[in-house]
Design a protein around this nucleic acid. Sequence first.
DNA 1: TATTGTTATACTCTATAACTATA
DNA 2: TATAGTTATAGAGTATAACAATA
Lengths: 146, 146
Amino acid sequence: MTAPDDSLHLTATDLRMATFRLARRLRSVRAADSMSDGQLAVLADLRMYGRRTISTLAERERVAAPSMTNTINGLEEQGYVVRTPDEDDRRRVQVDITDAGSDIVVETIRQRDVLLADMLAELDFTEDELTTLREASILMRRVTDR
Amino acid sequence: MTAPDDSLHLTATDLRMATFRLARRLRSVRAADSMSDGQLAVLADLRMYGRRTISTLAERERVAAPSMTNTINGLEEQGYVVRTPDEDDRRRVQVDITDAGSDIVVETIRQRDVLLADMLAELDFTEDELTTLREASILMRRVTDR
DNA sequence: TATTGTTATACTCTATAACTATA
DNA sequence: TATAGTTATAGAGTATAACAATA
């Protein structure tokens, strides 16, 4: 049996390499060519959690506030978000996703899932192997959500 | 039991989300602040597979040739790679990684593995769970190497 | 003629600093 | 005074087009 510490580091190395490669491959899929990774990440956040202010979005995406202003400008021009002035604190601007924005997120997710499902199907993975991947996904989520 | 097609798509969705989140977290770790993701990817390739021409590197990293010239310029200025004219075909330039370049790659990989191993250790994963992650890593590699 | 690499130039995304409006 | 957002400006990183050297 492998010593616990070795096992940890071997697992970390394997998982790191596998994760980077798969992420890189999947990230190349986008429903709208005109949308950047940063714009898509903001749309996905808005779709999942609802309206946000510019500064909250900047903090969540770990970019500077002017960068988020720029990102939101691009999304607004494409009709994927709308700005609404905050009534209670008129310094604030609330950003909401539009139906078109939501559609783009759903479609991008769908295309990525289809690509990955096709890749899995092509390799004729067994039910046991798919179960391993699902269980690993849950463990990976525990790592990032921690 | 889940129907095969559902199982495929559920697995794809779970794995996609888990992969993106983990990759994003790990990518924030770099041994040298002055190095970009693109530069690091080239160094890692050179360390693993040895000398490459500019156009081969451009093709492998899926960027345009002038972009790779720019990337190699940056790495050369920092002393992480050297250009060597090809004797047989004097249009070509061979790029080799230096010891300093190799050290940076090793150190970045080490820091990322330590971070991930620490994250795994903190969650007290069992040997069975670590085994699941290692098996999943192998399956993920089969997907991207296919 | 075709290929390899570089230079010239422009566009996108990001940042910091300075500014406006509001609290 | 402090905060939310924007504008001005600059620095990476990427792309296409045009060019020089070589095959």
